[in-house]
């Protein structure tokens, strides 16, 4: 007999769920004694159904338990009394006696097995819960990351909107500051409003300053450098600087954080004439 094909036929499942007819039941019960595989398959499906029922447990109303306990207590009083009667040789009494002890043995065994299997089940459910919970946590993190990067993009977009409005403004002078000789890859742009004299900087291509260093914008007024403000290191698009009423050129140097009174000429990065 191909026992694997037998196991896969669905007979085991019908048997466990009580859907098999008497012939089939007899067959399964003979084969389970002969083939450990059949026994294993029965156990596997029984455990599966049991776990499934446990996972879907619905708490019954509390009064049901008290009714049941009262009913069995009542029943006990009637069945047990003959065991302790003074005529133990009567046939009926010994039957009750055996029944009583058998019941006790099974219940005791059931509770022990129960304690063990419920621990195992708790452990299984707890593991399942932990897995779900950590999956949920990582989804949550992912969501937060997405939300914050979305916010970053929105900020960028707003900044670029402001920048593009400025570029389109006919009152706005745009002064390109290319890299000084030896630093051709650098570039920054100054926007200077002809009426308000407000100055904005766009750090197009400037290397990330070292720790403790910060870029400083200078306006060259009649050959003298005048401080026009520090570049905020977080400035990614366009940022407002100090108001400059009059200038012939703009330049950026790298200074100690906080800025200097006079520019360090060896650290000149970009420069552009008005």
């Amino acid at each position: 007999m191909d026992i694997q094909a037998y196991i896969r036929s669905g007979i085991i499942e019908s048997y466990v769920l009580g859907l098999a007819n008497s012939e089939e039941i007899a067959e399964v019960e003979t084969l389970r004694l002969q083939y450990p595989e059949v026994e294993d398959a029965i156990m596997e499906f029984s455990v599966l159904i049991e776990e499934q029922a446990f996972e879907n447990a619905v708490a019954p109303p509390p009064f049901v338990k008290s009714k049941i306990m009262a009913a069995i207590h009542e029943e006990d009083r009637h069945t047990i009394s003959p065991v302790f009667s003074l005529s133990p040789n009567e046939e009926g009494n010994s039957v009750v006696h055996i029944t009583f002890f058998r019941k006790w043995r099974i219940l005791a065994a059931a509770s022990t097995i129960l304690a063990i299997s419920s621990t195992a089940l708790n452990f299984y459910l707890y593991n399942k819960y932990s897995r779900k919970n950590s999956a949920y946590q990582s989804l949550l993190t992912e969501r937060n990351t997405l939300a914050s990067s979305n916010q970053v993009y929105q900020t960028h977009l707003r900044e670029w909107e402001v920048a593009s409005r400025m570029m389109a403004d006919t009152e706005m002078a745009m002064i390109k500051m290319p890299g000084v000789p030896g630093k051709p890859q650098h570039l920054a742009t100054v926007f200077w409003h002809s009426q308000s004299k407000d100055v904005y900087i766009m750090p197009n291509k400037l290397p990330l300053p070292a720790a403790g260093k910060q870029y400083q914008l200078w306006a060259l007024v009649n050959g003298k450098p005048v401080d026009a403000g520090m570049l905020d290191p977080s400035c990614n698009s366009i940022c407002k600087m100090k108001n400059v009423p009059y200038a012939q050129a703009f330049a950026i140097t790298l200074e100690n954080a906080g800025g200097s009174a006079t520019p360090t000429m060896t650290q000149l990065f970009v420069m552009g004439k008005v």
Partner: peptide, 26 residues
């Protein structure tokens, strides 16, 4: 004594299985 222990074992059985059996009935 034994009777009491039998009942408490049964009470334990109820506590563990009533929820899953109730869902089967439902």
């Amino acid at each position: 004594m034994l009777k009491q222990r039998q009942e408490s074992a049964f009470s334990y059985l109820y506590d563990h299985y009533s929820g899953s059996l109730y869902s089967v009935i439902l």
